[in-house]
Design a protein around this nucleic acid. Structure first.
Lengths: 79, 79
DNA sequence: GCCATTTTACCGCTTTAGCAGTAATTATTT
DNA sequence: AAATAATTACTGCTAAAGCGGTAAAATGGC
């Protein structure tokens, strides 16, 4: 499953569980209804800022993972 | 620190460690040099698909986290 | 069945991300 | 210090994300 489809499923599931329809979620997030619809449709490309606004309302956090990530955090602590 | 700035740091760090300059990373990812530059500058809004291409080259994975996520996965297994 | 709600799908329109090209500024190396 | 490389910062342009409005499908309740 490609990335956008995965996001689509996650957003839809969380929206359902929080009892919002697409329009309500869009309003809460401060985006247009079309944006929410596009996300849940798994549109190839969306704006990151738009997705973030929606995820914030649904209380979904994003985490980055890589073998280097801990190295990076270590180097940050030295400041 | 806002989200885009965080991404900027992560991308730049990983690019450095992999010994690529912005142009090389852009070419590998199949995006323009401006896109990489904008990401590392922490531009307010970028296209998710563009970011994903870049993260893929740098071997960075994205994970979503929420209290409902395990519930969702459980319901998926019932299919 | 019918009705209300929601979702899907279009429409023009505006804004903007991304593009290559170029130039200037800032490292880095010799 | 000078030359080279890399980054930053513009430019004009094209493609597309997002917008509200509207309308048609799909869904759920009575």
């Amino acid at each position: 499953m490609d990335f956008e489809k995965k996001i689509a499923k996650i957003v839809r599931f969380h929206r359902m569980k929080s009892g919002l329809n697409q329009k309500q979620l869009a309003d809460h997030a401060g985006v247009g209804k079309t944006a929410v619809f596009d996300i849940e449709k798994g549109k190839e490309s969306i704006r990151l800022s738009t997705l973030m606004k929606v995820l914030e309302v649904l209380n979904i956090k994003i985490k980055f993972e890589s073998p280097l990530m801990n190295v990076m955090e270590d180097e940050n602590e030295k400041s």
